[in-house]
Design a protein around this nucleic acid. Structure first.
Length: 586
RNA sequence: GGUGGCGUAGUUCAGUUGGUUAGAAUGCCGGCCUGUCACGCCGGAGGUCGCGAGUUCGAGUCUCGUCGUCACCGCCA
């Protein structure tokens, strides 16, 4: 036994007890004749006291102590003469009788404090030190609590937690696969799962009825603050259910998590068709914490000799509340912002709705006060508001207006991290057209069932077929998504042909699933939540890296262990691999 | 693949129009200090200005390239 108590639990009622604590030296304060040491572990901080009465042995040990030394101290708990109300153990201290250095520390490269002086780079390189810091540790504790809550909810609902293989088979659809060469099968590769999709459907065929798993998934695509090459899903599938059953079950899970983990009651849980999300928010993951909806003003702005609008496919606007007083400089900044290639607008037209009821716009030459009043009325803009107008190709401008809306929401402080607005986005298109390869791709995945009422459109206008697919969106973050699956092998074959697979290709890639469906497949549907995103949302963070113990950087590198890395030629030989790395030009 | 930001002491940053010996805070080391808790006071050490080329009498500063890192677009069924 290295300790009798943790550094977070001793109180005044322990006064007089002899205790042994072990932990890290947070800080040493020498005041000449006496010295204080803050001893830290994951539970808290306890103050150790040494004075002139301490033995020479202790004094010489004490002299050597530096930050992050691991020590063990034994002594009596006593009341402090001057108390610290800021920490839980602030009324007591340990009068140390024995001191042992268990493990010394070199000087750490940054301070191990709530507000560290270290930047991201160095904290990632020394992640094991960063994890000692309370805010980082608390994020991971939150993650553990949430995983626990997910399991208790789903177990309670009779879901069976089942593991599925990590070494599986590469499929052409979807994201790029991470692949693993097989030593025993020369020239052949496993793939790491992008999700356990086909296995969970097979578990439904197997009669498991309700499956879940908190599981790692892998996608070899470029990364973002909210995307890691390996990430964790709460993966679920249910048999003998319709879309509504899945939505209500996982609405239940979401509400349960908010209540159990954050003590937040979620009452409103709207559904929004995909088409409405795109039209009003310019996004399939609308942030509904604030309004500022996109309005189509194409009809009323055309025919006034303003060529830019007359030639545009679509003219859309949003109204930013209380921004009529924006200066020329602010408007120029916004204009530059929307003209960035990432947003892609050609320019920005504004209308200031002045407090006196008049309107001042950048296109006054073409539009009368009455015209502008009409715009304002469509945009629900009142005196003091600023209308921002973009024009151009419809889908591009909806996207740009959506981005501008979020930017304005951010500038106006409308995105409160403690407000949570979940919704289901439903009725996604089944397919999306890819210009480059001139074919349709499954928007969700190839096993997603079309809506029954749209099946007749599959041949005539496949692009307009809606799917029984749904996403859970909270505060503009895509938390999860799923679909009702096809369980009819004929319809599945039809889907494969729409996606441009020959019978043989479909057989080679997905034969095992299609075979399974021949043996009595129950109607089934499923969903997966991005667990990292959900935790970061709960923690009020923008990057999922902060809720992952050992994350990777933008380029998919782990800067702590320095991976990925080359392997020995012998390893390559054993795997029957030859490298073909292109030389750098220069 | 593309766009942009950043890279200066262990760390976080400042560094003017290109001009003498590159600064601050913090951390670190030494000294003093018996109630501190971001202890205080005094002193000290610490720099390949990411790397490479170029412009210039002269580059931390300007140009180009490159590497690293972050954010975004493409991509992510």
């Amino acid at each position: 036994m290295y300790r009798t108590h943790t550094c977070g639990e001793l109180r005044l009622e322990n006064q007089g007890n002899e205790v042994t604590l072990a932990g890290w030296v947070q800080r040493k304060r020498e005041l000449g004749g006496m010295t204080f040491v803050d001893l830290r572990d994951r539970y808290g901080i306890t103050q150790l006291v040494f004075d002139e009465n301490s033995s020479d042995a202790i004094t010489s040990q004490l002299k050597k102590l530096g930050r992050e030394f691991v020590i063990q101290a034994t002594g009596l708990v006593r009341e402090r003469s001057s108390k610290n109300k800021n920490i839980a153990t602030g009324e007591i201290e340990i009068d140390v009788k024995e001191l042992k250095v268990l493990s010394p520390s070199v000087v750490p490269p940054f301070t191990i404090e709530d507000e560290s002086d270290g930047g991201d780079d160095i904290r990632m390189k020394y992640r094991y030190l960063d994890l000692r810091r309370t805010p980082v540790r608390e994020n991971l504790i939150l993650r553990a609590q949430m995983a626990h809550a997910v399991r208790s909810y789903l177990n309670e609902q009779d879901f069976i937690e089942t593991e599925t293989p990590v070494l599986i088979k590469s499929t052409p659809e979807g994201a790029r696969d991470f692949v693993v060469p097989s030593r025993m099968n020369e020239g052949e590769f496993y793939a790491l799962p992008q999700s356990p999709q086909q296995f969970k459907q097979l578990l439904m065929v197997a009669g498991f009825d309700r499956y879940y798993q908190i599981v790692k998934c892998f996608r070899d695509e470029d990364l973002r603050a909210d995307r890691q090459p390996e990430f964790t899903q709460i993966d679920c599938e249910m048999a003998f259910v319709e879309q509504e059953d899945v939505l209500s079950t996982f609405e239940g899970l979401t509400k349960y998590l908010f209540k159990a983990v954050k003590n937040v009651e979620i009452t409103d849980f709207p559904r929004m068709p995909y088409s409405e999300a795109i039209a009003n928010y310019g996004s399939d993951k609308p942030d509904t914490r604030f309004e500022m909806l996109i309005k189509d003003i194409s009809e009323v702005v055309k025919g006034k000799d303003f060529k830019v609008f007359d030639d545009a496919e679509f003219i859309g606007a949003i109204s930013a509340e209380g921004c009529a007083n924006y200066t020329r400089k602010q408007l120029d900044a916004l204009t530059n912002w929307v003209k960035r290639p990432q947003v892609g607008a050609k320019g920005l037209v504004y209308v200031k709705c002045n407090e006196d009821g008049s309107y001042k716009s950048s296109v006054d030459k073409f539009y009368s006060q009455e015209d502008l009043q009409q715009w304002a009325s469509i945009c629900n803009a009142k005196a003091g508001d600023l209308i921002l107008v973009l024009s151009g190709d419809k889908s591009a401008m909806l996207y740009a207006l959506g981005a501008l809306r979020l930017e304005m929401g951010k500038q106006l402080g409308l995105m409160d991290k403690n407000t949570f607005k979940p919704l289901w986005v439903v009725d996604f298109p089944l397919l999306e057209w890819d210009e480059e390869s001139q074919r349709h791709y499954a928007m969700h995945h190839p096993f997603t069932s079309p809506k029954a009422e749209d099946i007749h459109l599959l041949d005539s206008e496949p692009g307009n077929v809606r799917a029984n697919a749904y996403d859970l969106v909270i505060n503009g973050v895509e938390i999860g998504g799923g679909s009702v699956r096809i369980f009819d092998s004929e319809l599945q074959a039809k889907m494969f042909s729409l996606l441009g697979f020959t019978k043989e290709e479909a057989e080679a890639q997905f034969g095992f699933l299609m075979n399974a469906f021949k043996y009595g497949a129950p109607p089934h549907a499923g969903i997966a939540f991005g667990f990292d995103r959900l935790v970061s949302l709960f923690a009020g963070l923008d990057s999922i890296r902060d809720v992952i113990a050992f994350p990777k950087n933008n380029a998919g590198r782990d800067v702590m262990i320095d991976s990925p890395s080359p392997i020995a030629i012998e390893q390559l030989d054993e795997l029957s691999l030859k490298l073909n790395v292109k030389p750098q030009d220069n």
